[in-house]
Nucleic acid binder design. Structure first.
Lengths: 88, 88
DNA sequence: TTGTAGACTTTAGTCGACA
DNA sequence: ATGTCGACTAAAGTCTACA
């Protein structure tokens, strides 16, 4: 229940953080990736969880390697797992 | 058109390769991740593209870090991009 | 042990318009 | 420059059963 929604929140925050750091607007990024601007917004806000394909495209626009992107996500995910107290 | 289907093929092959290496059956993995076995099959065959959330769960069962998983995917993806002749 | 089919519910993803 | 609503099409994801 928690897991399914946690990931998309993290992805959204991560995309936004990188986009800001690159000095891009949502529209800039949307244009780079050939998607609608509103879709970028949905992702960043955590309303939609982008598919891997989309994330690869986003990473192209964000000029970051997908594996590096997921490393960031992974770290945040691990943090939240601690809080929730997940015993592997 | 090509890109959208390439990724799921790569993900499928990658999941399968790791699963085999771990000596797990599809059913073992399905049980680890609390999903149906047929779903694992669909992924491996490249019929469905699992969401990031699902991939994180799969990685837990496969005992691999998501970022490492995506590194493998990324490498294969890069290879195919060469073949297709993607500039950038 | 794996692939697939079918039927179903939920969600991603596209787009235009408005706050 | 960003979030959201509404409506739509496509695809994910679940499950049972059969090759």
């Amino acid at each position: 229940m928690s897991d399914q929604s946690i990931i998309k929140q993290i992805i959204g925050k991560t995309v936004k953080a990188i986009r800001i750091k690159q000095g891009l607007s949502q529209e800039d990024l949307a244009h780079e990736c050939n998607v609608d601007r509103s879709y970028i917004s949905m992702i960043e806000v955590g309303r939609n969880e982008p598919s891997v394909t989309k994330i690869f495209e986003l990473c192209k626009g964000l000029k970051i390697k997908p594996s590096d992107f997921f490393k960031l996500v992974e770290v945040e995910y691990a943090k939240l797992q601690e809080k929730d107290g997940e015993s592997s």
